[in-house]
Simulated assay, not measured.
Amino acid sequence: MTKHKIYTMSFASVYPHYVKKAEKKGRTKSEVDEIILWLTGYDQEKLEAQLEKQTDFETFFEEAPELNPSRAMIKGVICGVRVEEIEEPLMQEIRYMDKLVDELAKGKAMEKILRN
């Protein structure tokens, strides 16, 4: 079975799009980072290292220190698909991140985005 194209894409190539989407709606890069750190367990230094290494999405999630158990609370539609119904684990992780950035861009409060 062929890997989905996004799995082999560099996380660093998509990251600026996350930031741009958020900033266009008055949010900040640091809020995008906070979401990514919450989801993956990376700290800021390790996130920067992953960006610098041009790590692909598959490796980015494989090396994540601790995926947040509360991510299972992320519900809703992204790219026309309900994130909670995605069966492929890696694709689900990627779509969780997309959904969180989308919520940020839509003006949702950080404590709600981070499922507090």
Rank of each mutant, 00 (worst) to 15 (best):
D43E: 08
F57I: 06
V32N: 00
E85S: 14
E93V: 07
A49W: 10
L37T: 01
K25D: 06
V19D: 03
L39E: 10
L37A: 03
W38M: 04
E63R: 11
M73T: 10
I74G: 04
V77R: 14
C79V: 10
F60M: 00
V81E: 14
R82L: 12
G26N: 01
Q44K: 15
T28F: 02
G76R: 02
K75V: 12
L51T: 02
G80K: 03
L67F: 15
V32H: 01
Q92T: 10
E58S: 13
K53C: 08
E52N: 14
K21F: 06
Q50E: 15
E66F: 11
K20Q: 10
E66K: 15
T28R: 03
T55Y: 07
E88V: 13
R71N: 09
E84R: 06
N68Q: 10
K75E: 13
R82C: 11
F61W: 09
Q50P: 03
D56R: 05
A49R: 13
Y42A: 00
V32W: 04
V83M: 01
G41M: 05
F60C: 05
E87P: 06
K29C: 05
K21H: 09
L39S: 05
F60G: 07
K29M: 09
A64N: 07
L51D: 04
V83D: 01
E87S: 14
L67A: 07
E58W: 10
F60Y: 08
E66P: 08
G41I: 05
M73I: 08
K29P: 01
Q44I: 09
K24C: 09
T59V: 14
I94K: 02
E63F: 12
V81C: 10
L39M: 04
S70D: 13
